[in-house]
Design a protein around this nucleic acid. Structure first.
Lengths: 201, 201
DNA sequence: ACTTGCATGCAGGCTGCCTGTTTGTTAAAT
DNA sequence: ATTTAACAAACAGGCAGCCTGCATGCAAGT
């Protein structure tokens, strides 16, 4: 390692070192979990010392957060790429859910974003990271559906939260072996049921 | 403390000490989280030394697991007490969901069972602890509803998992301030929608 | 162009804490 | 009277965060 030692400007060094540490840390966090991943093991994998890590990150949580943020952005990008405007609100919701579940199948993604993330960083922080991506678009999608009358008037915050919880569990279940078609069938049915049934019975 | 020092048989001592340690640990786990709760702080709160703790529990995870198990049993008991047989399958499901959400409002319960539990003990272990209670009865309830034709034929595992994920998020949202009526309205609508809409559209 | 001075990137060691283990002591059970 | 359970207390690693020191990049003055 470090054989080349090319001339690099400081901004380049910083970016490369941070990316290197985040990549190595990601693998360890995914395979062993946050608590069982020591900072010595991270820097050993990156071929540097703990001095480097603590120069770029305030503490162990900070590098974990960097890993989670990168992961969240990757998911958001995949969903945005799969978005198909022009469809009905309900169809777009279903397509978005499918894209989300598929995007979450990258190795370790459910563990990072859905299991350890909330426990290590706290639900508020995770929402701050993911919220501006995932839930926000889901919420607007639901609002549109309500506005165009294809969805009954329901408390938007609760509706968004409960549906996103369903999507998240769907991603976990698929990652654990449940056939994608099964969870998508349930999601489709729930969305269809929400749309068809009229408010009060 | 320890002023009385009454004559106690060993089984009594064991039961009392375990209960005492679990109770003190519970408070600390709830307020500071698992990682930030040290075994010295637990035994200090209980007025003993770490020798006592490690005599009764194999490791730190073991006492956390004891806390989680006690919590899970309390939830199961509350739900069982609220069960009202004789209703339609769908009404029982809704009543069960409401009982679950209410039972989960005990201080720190969502954090223990839904946030830290899966991260610390792993999803498999949590399912082993909770599974025999919560999801099992939900699954049979759903199967009954499908059998009696009030619910469409859907993959039972996926359906159970996604609905329980919704209920869990509902409990978290209520614990974080969302009005109970809001989340219950969404749950009711989802259950109603599932029931009314016929299989394929 | 050169050097002077500061900032940045990183290495290595130090401290305090924590977890799990082991050894020792007291009280109960047989 | 032994044996065993309940606890205390000391011990042995390991880890997180901090701090100091060195080397390299960078900017400004001359």
């Amino acid at each position: 390692m470090q054989v080349k030692s090319v001339r690099r400007s400081n901004p380049e060094r910083t970016a490369e070192m941070r990316a290197r540490l985040v990549a190595k840390a990601r693998r360890l966090f995914v395979t062993h979990g946050y608590a069982a991943t020591s900072t010595p093991s991270i820097v050993e994998a990156a071929g540097v010392t703990r001095g480097a890590l603590y120069h770029h990150f305030a503490d162990k949580q900070a590098i974990f957060r960097a890993v989670v943020e990168a992961e969240s952005e990757a998911v958001a990008a995949a969903i945005a790429a799969a978005d198909t405007p022009g469809l009905s609100a309900r169809a777009r919701l279903l397509a978005g859910a499918k894209a989300y579940v598929l995007a979450m199948q990258a190795q370790g993604r459910t563990r990072l974003l859905l299991i350890e993330g909330p426990a290590v960083l706290g639900r508020d922080t995770i929402r701050e990271i993911e919220g501006r991506n995932g839930d926000a678009s889901l919420k607007t999608g639901l609002e549109e559906a309500i506005a165009e009358g294809t969805l009954p008037r329901l408390p938007i915050e609760a509706l968004t939260s409960l549906l996103s919880a369903m999507f998240e569990r769907a991603a976990i279940d698929v990652a654990e072996g449940e056939p994608t078609d099964n969870v998508l069938a349930v999601i489709a049915q729930v969305l269809r049921g929400l749309a068809t049934s009229e408010q009060k019975a």
